[in-house]
Simulated scan of single mutants.
Amino acid sequence: MELPKIYNTYFLAIISTVGGMLFGFDISSMSAIIGTPQYVDYFDDPHGVVQGAIGSALAAGSVVGALFAGTLSDKIGRRDAVFSACLWWLAGTAVQVACNGYGMLIAGRILNGVCVGITSSQVPVYLAEIAKKEKRGSIIVIQQLAIEWGIL
């Protein structure tokens, strides 16, 4: 079964930048969560290396995702690569929701980071490929706007 073709470039840009919004949301939500009493109590007030590992796990996963995103996109196409990145996000979110300790939280954030790496590197390329040359810049800006919107 093949996904249907959509030809409205702006609609595709908005849908494609959901990964950017998730990236911004994950950055801002984690920095808001680490100070809550529930987080401090559940994870026994992590400091130092442990808190650093939790915070940087998303970035580590995004490096991994960005490294193999080009190969993945060449093999299955940009649209399907972005779609598969969303599956990584769902898997990472499921692990974080079910976490019972530092390890699962870090693993879930790494999985989410893989999605961020793939979408951050492939969505601008995909948008540039589908946009007309006179609208290319304004279409690409939508991804950065989505990241900022997610942070907000």
Rank of each mutant, 00 (worst) to 15 (best):
M1K: 15
P4V: 03
N8T: 02
S16M: 03
T17N: 10
L22V: 00
L22G: 00
F23V: 02
G24V: 02
I27Q: 11
A32R: 09
I34M: 03
Q38D: 14
V40M: 12
Y42G: 11
Y42A: 14
F43S: 03
F43C: 04
P46I: 02
H47R: 12
Q51I: 01
S56A: 15
V64M: 10
G65I: 05
A66T: 06
A66P: 02
A66W: 08
A69P: 03
G70K: 06
G70V: 01
G70N: 04
S73F: 00
D74E: 13
K75V: 00
K75W: 08
K75N: 07
V82P: 02
F83G: 01
S84D: 09
W89H: 00
T93F: 00
V95Y: 00
V95C: 01
Q96A: 14
C99E: 14
N100A: 13
Y102N: 07
I106Q: 05
T119D: 08
T119Y: 05
S120A: 14
Q122I: 12
L127V: 08
E129S: 13
A131R: 08
A131M: 06
A131Y: 08
K132H: 15
K135V: 13
R136G: 04
R136F: 11
S138V: 14
Q144E: 14
A146I: 02
I147L: 05
W149F: 15
